[in-house]
Design a protein around this nucleic acid. Sequence first.
DNA 1: CTGAAAGCGCTTACAG
DNA 2: CTGAAAGCGCTTACAG
Lengths: 339, 339
Amino acid sequence: MKQDKEPTIYDVARVAEVSIATVSRVFNKSPLVTEKTVKHVLDAARKLGFTPSASARGLSGGKQETIGIVLPILYGNFFSDLIYSVQALAEDRGYDIVVAGQKGSPDELFATLKKLSSKIDGLILMYHKEGLKEEIIRRCPRIPVVLLSRFVRYREHVDLVLDNFTGAKLATEHLISMGHRKIAHIKGEEGNIDALERMEGFLNATDAAGIPRSNIELLSGTFRQISGYNAVEELFRKRRDITAIFSSNDAMALGALNWMQQNGVNVPGDVAMCGFDDIEFAQMVRPSLSSVYLNTQKFGETAFRMLMDQIAEKSVSDIPKGMVIAPELKRRESSSHAR
Amino acid sequence: MKQDKEPTIYDVARVAEVSIATVSRVFNKSPLVTEKTVKHVLDAARKLGFTPSASARGLSGGKQETIGIVLPILYGNFFSDLIYSVQALAEDRGYDIVVAGQKGSPDELFATLKKLSSKIDGLILMYHKEGLKEEIIRRCPRIPVVLLSRFVRYREHVDLVLDNFTGAKLATEHLISMGHRKIAHIKGEEGNIDALERMEGFLNATDAAGIPRSNIELLSGTFRQISGYNAVEELFRKRRDITAIFSSNDAMALGALNWMQQNGVNVPGDVAMCGFDDIEFAQMVRPSLSSVYLNTQKFGETAFRMLMDQIAEKSVSDIPKGMVIAPELKRRESSSHAR
DNA sequence: CTGAAAGCGCTTACAG
DNA sequence: CTGAAAGCGCTTACAG
């Protein structure tokens, strides 16, 4: 039963009394083989504990049955949600997933990709650089890629976007629809593109509603809770006419909530509040926090399907699709009070 | 420059005017090759954009330069932290990581492992079942494995344990050392082994301190925040002499904190509080929440090192090491008041 | 220090 | 429907 080395296709062929070609066909579900032969082969394989060698398959057939996911950083909820959703689909299709991070420069990225490329049949890549799609097609010509971005501004350069901008716009429109005309925005970290796109979404909505810039207040933040706390403190020192706040993330919104609760400002009675990210605590806090949910799961699933399409067509599509995964607004208590 | 197909070792050999054996040696950093030859080969390889085929290497050399990580579920902070820490080390050593989840039964697990085994040089596996180590060695004899568990009770069956029990004990001892003798514990989800081990750690500490069982109160919980809220509400209806609470996780601790703040119970003045998990919000909330931190990063790094050792020794070690990664207590405001 | 050659375990035209 | 055989791109004794 127990082998000293892994059994090969030859062992199976011998036991099943067929040629190795037939064994190979059985494991590749070729329609050519008789049902009876299939059974023989499968029995022999089971008896020997045979599993085809991925290396040999890869070498001769060119299929790895593995896809790669390369992300800026293998960390946090975004990473975890993305892998989770892709893996669930990949498993059904018999694909394994190899993950890689990427440090800094495009050159290092390409070194990673080159090394990875002989292990995978396709790649899901999140990286932000104009013209990257074209460069990848040029430098890794044989490998289908789905390019991902969290930034609408790169829409034309990638295949799939998880849209911060529209999320922020949705949240702001919601606050406006509740009657608010004097709205503050707590910005995210300086230089962070998520933060930038969220602010742009905010301004786009207020502008579209005809709200004058003097009615809005942009507050500095760092995405950390304490900066939300400090931001509202400063806001209220400066002016007290603001009736709604859109925060660039939930952590800062919670910090802001904290300050207001400590200082007798009622939410949503005096000030309505909306965050971004829809972290677990948004539902847990009192008042529960309205927030924008980025559907990372859908993002991952769509990316995987796009990749499978490319692999199936055996065509490395060079037409960026620029598809967008829409964010969703979660209305909760913190913005439930109409003006 | 741009090839219609990937360049091979033959192309490099031709351009560098050496044999393919030499090219191979260069890429395997064989000490035999002249510096001058190395340079020629590397130049040719660069010029052609050559990267060795992982499949061919795997087939003929038996090294995949890939390790597998198989976890119960590819989800949440634990997963993300573990991958992050392993990946950082693996990248330095030139290893890629393939991840897989596992559904239910041991048979499905072994199917997953068998399929994976030809793609990897070693495996980090988290799975809870007595005798699993032996079964793996029997059924996947050629592949080094590091078995992980979050449960000390399986210590003898695995290589590395992330210790819930001691974490809970630490937290409880801390509360006792602050002078508390009447302590409640909010339990985690019924049937969950993490929850069970945390409760056992709690009871172990109170017993060791000679605290009578009548002085302690075990409250039902589900790990969700609301259940912590409900648990203290019930506790205070029942008795008001409890001066400290150890919660099986932070979410419930935060729920409990919530109830107490709403009902005029001062933390830590009237009741000290300690949670488990050290989630981000533990530091953000007021009062900040004391908690137990499971060093997942160290867990992952240690697992990887153990695996590398096994791979290097080329010996599939069958002696479970039963090493334990100690949890750390984070003392914060919620338990800062001595009795 | 370098090369010729066998072999790793498959897939896939090509014959039959 | 099945088999014999070439070939995928490497590594590694074995010679020299």
